[in-house]
């Protein structure tokens, strides 16, 4: 199985859509080689705007392009993009500008560059904005489908969170992405594992590994974090009685928090654990060494899930 970074899958799809969707315009802040928006830039230079290292200006400019009837994709690293919160709030979200904010280099999975380049609070920030949708695809196919969906969406902005590192395919061949819909990757009765983005495959492997310990774990890929699939969360929480979320993001305000809100507001009392970055910043290291240290690789998730099943709290 080939490993493709979701940023690369994004770049390729955008380049493809550029030919048929003449209203697509792309902006980048001196990171087009990293966000992969360069693929579009090379093919459609007249619809690509290099904005230099000035993200605030880029975001508000994208809003103006959107108001004038274009479909802007506004690209940078997740942390730099969402760091310009006031511009996203006032220029984009409040007036429902149909801008797609593309934040690549999500999580500690980026590795050596360290904390300053890691998007670790971005889901929390974007989830808190009215009118903003938040999507985090788990593999190449899902990324293509999410990009296709947002490219046609006219009623408001969306935040797309993408990985630097390659990810393996998790989606079945017949998968169709729908906003507000989770994807069941594995059925199970003892615990519902809900994951998103680059850690979906490790979460799936962890669930498989626990089979030998007699644990039957369902695995749900939650690419659509806002809107979120309340029905699937409720059904699987009731069926399994235990919910375990996994994300390469601070556990505060991310996928786990979104799932927890659904559980509590629907009166579901179950064992619940948010696994991810436990309210800490990132650091330098190889992606593998970081995933090992922060227990986001197959083995680390499996150990943490096992502890959770045994009632060990963090």
């Amino acid at each position: 199985m080939g490993k493709i970074a979701t940023r690369k899958a994004f770049g390729q799809k955008l380049e493809e859509l550029g030919a048929s969707h003449k209203n697509i315009v792309v902006l980048d802040a001196d990171l087009s080689k990293s966000t992969k928006s360069e693929l579009f830039a090379k093919k459609f230079p007249e619809r690509f705007f290099e904005m230099g290292i000035a993200e605030a200006n880029m975001i508000s400019t994208a809003a103006g392009l959107a108001f004038a009837g274009n479909k802007p994709f506004c690209c940078s690293f997740a942390c730099f993009l969402t760091g310009r919160y006031d511009q996203i709030r006032m220029s984009v979200a409040y007036p429902r500008a149909p801008v797609v904010l593309v934040g690549t280099h999500a999580g500690i999975g980026i590795g050596e560059d360290g904390n300053s380049q890691m998007g670790l609070e971005d889901i929390n920030l974007m989830r808190g904005l009215p009118n903003m949708m938040v999507f985090q695809p788990a593999d190449e196919m899902e990324t293509h489908q999410v990009v296709e969906f947002v490219s046609q969406y006219k009623d408001g902005p969306a935040y797309l969170r993408l990985t630097r590192q390659g990810v393996e395919d998790v989606s079945p061949a017949n998968y169709r992405f729908k906003p507000g819909k989770g994807q069941i990757l594995r059925e199970g009765d003892d615990v519902a594992v809900i994951a998103s983005g680059g850690v979906v495959m490790p979460a799936l492997q962890a669930a498989r590994a626990l089979e030998k310990d007699g644990v039957s774990a369902a695995v749900i890929n939650m690419a659509s974090i806002k809107p979120i699939d309340e029905e699937t969360i409720i059904n699987y929480a009731r069926q399994c009685g235990k919910v375990f979320t996994v994300e390469d993001h601070n556990i505060i305000g991310g996928l786990g928090t979104a799932v927890g809100e659904v559980l509590i507001e629907n009166g579901i009392h179950c064992a619940f654990r948010r696994h991810g970055l436990y309210d800490v910043f990132g650091e330098s290291g190889s992606p593998d060494s970081l995933y090992e240290k922060y227990r986001l690789d197959d083995a680390g998730i499996a150990v943490t899930l096992k502890e959770f099943m045994q009632g060990v709290t963090k």
Partner: peptide
Amino acid sequence: SVAQGYAF
């Protein structure tokens, strides 16, 4: 910046 977007 928004005005610049319209001009683009």
